[in-house]
Write a protein that binds this DNA or RNA. Structure first.
Lengths: 237, 237
DNA sequence: CGGCAACTTGATTTCTTTCAAGAGAAGTGG
DNA sequence: CCACTTCTCTTGAAAGAAATCAAGTTGCCG
């Protein structure tokens, strides 16, 4: 297991949405947040268990998944540095709604429920930042639902899933969706992609070869390039 | 168009999540919120347009839908009294992500973006309430995505959609999901149900008759009764 | 009564899943 | 360094399910 040499990194890390907080608020944050190190393939949060704390991911990637009784798996998204885990559950439902599993060795901070609530009600700006974070996550979830419901064909589901993945990496929020190739790091297996798009592993495999043949897609070792994003939106209903 | 006799109702209405606010905060709320009356089948919010205000539904029901370029429609949910419309868009993306259409004559309050942000940052409790509301909406959206992704069969998608609809009506948050019949008002057409569950209108029709034959479902004029909720979860993958 | 919207039901077609088998790459341990 | 296991990916064939196309019914409202 790889650990940072010291806590220097961890003690200063705060999520992006807290960048505009006052100094006292930030000090409060660092006083209640406890740092932890986790290996790959560890479970940080378990679906259905009581939401006793909120986690903040400092480094590494974390899969958020939901499982059905029959063993089927839905991959909601892959969280990265700066993301909150279990925030909505802590604020609302008292029970985590997804399972969080590390993909890499991770550094995380945890804040117990009571401490977090106190921190939030003490500083108005914190409430505001948290609300914005939640709004962002909400929009992501709505887009996911939309994707799953609106695309009838498997090709459409997979294409829009890939486009979403590509665009999350691009911090580019410009109003002009370009038709220039988008390239991004693909760390998901076909099985993962299938459980994001609601498709079987084999179908994903078949479709990717089809996209490649159609000239829409290029793949190197761990990168994926979408050659004509706009056409891709349109071509695969 | 049916309008209340006076503004008495409207001037005192505040969403449930504001019930614990201080008197000054509530007064502030009522001073910035403007009341409107809308007929059935009016569009309150349009997908893609800039999020200039947040709406609060006082009475009536509102459909939240997203449309694809091909004319396909996804019905995210039906909002009721006390619900916010456009909250996440206003806080995060600056663009509404869904279209809101009235189903009944509605009374709504609107608050311009700037006023709302000021209101929120002024009172810590407001930030907290808003965060909780967003957490609730987020969980709903995740459950919707989950439903669409995890159920392979059309029967499973429709059954879980109906169960969700039934349970939203029940304010019963008890940890014991009973197997007693659940009855609820069904104001959605087969087409609506189809666009919630990601199915065609005909498939919904066929499945409802099948559920009826299976003894899982009873329907009167505008009510629907799910006879064995737990079996229903299990039976239709 | 006419007209429209919602619903029902049947037949056909299309697509995805499932089952099956094998190839390639990566990691493990002797 | 090599044999072995495991995981991922690929591809084929068959079965099954939902969408689509089509036609007809019901019920409500003007």
């Amino acid at each position: 297991m790889i650990r940072p040499r010291s806590d220097a990194h961890c003690s200063t890390f705060a999520p992006q949405c807290f960048s505009s907080l006052s100094a006292p608020a930030l000090r409060h944050f660092h006083s209640v947040a406890v740092c932890h190190y986790r290996d790959s393939h560890e479970t940080l949060i378990r679906e259905g268990s009581p939401a006793s704390q909120v986690l903040i991911l400092c480094s590494g990637r974390v899969k958020l998944v939901a499982a059905s009784a029959e063993g089927r798996i839905f991959l909601l998204r892959v969280a990265g540095p700066g993301d909150f885990l279990g925030l909505a559950a802590l604020l609302q439902s008292a029970v985590y709604r997804v399972t969080a599993e590390t993909l890499d060795p991770c550094v995380i901070k945890s804040i117990p429920r009571a401490d977090f609530i106190r921190f939030m009600t003490l500083y108005p700006d914190v409430g505001h930042s948290i609300a914005q974070t939640l709004a962002h996550e909400y929009n992501g979830a709505v887009l996911t639902a939309r994707r799953l419901a609106l695309h009838t064909s498997a090709a459409g589901k997979l294409a829009s899933t890939l486009l979403d993945l590509a665009r999350v990496d691009e911090p580019d929020n410009g109003p002009a969706p370009t038709n220039l190739p988008i390239s991004f790091v693909m760390q998901l297996t076909h099985e993962d992609l299938g459980s994001m798009a609601g498709l079987s592993r084999e179908t994903v495999s078949r479709l990717l070869t089809r996209f490649r043949r159609d000239g829409q897609l290029n793949q190197t070792l761990d990168r994926m390039t979408l050659n004509h994003p706009i056409q891709m939106e349109a071509r695969y209903v």
